[in-house]
Amino acid sequence: MKQVFIVYLLIMALVTYALRAVPFMAFRRKVRNRFFRSFLYYIPYTVLAAMTFPAVLFATKSLLPAALGTATALVLAYRGKGMVLVSLSACAVALAAGFLF
């Protein structure tokens, strides 16, 4: 049987929505347990970091443009630059490096 786009769409949307909304609705009270609170404190940063490295290094066809773009983002973020500047500078450097090397 041929799979239908609309069913795929519904599955994607519903699974993703449930993962977001259900735990958000279920946890109504402040977590008192210090261990669990600390765990949750680190979650945003560990998730984003694990998703970034090493995947970012393979975002372009060869390693060098991606590596230079990443380095640019790290330096600008360290200097406290905003999200857009950091992000677009990384793209621009990777693009330029892709042409140069």
């Binding site: 940063y45 984003l48 970034t52 970012v56 990443t70 973020a77 793209c91």
Partner: peptide
Amino acid sequence: DAMGLAIYGMFIAIVVPK
């Protein structure tokens, strides 16, 4: 291809200052 870095740049901008 280069624009593929945009999302990672956003992640980096959130994590590094912290």
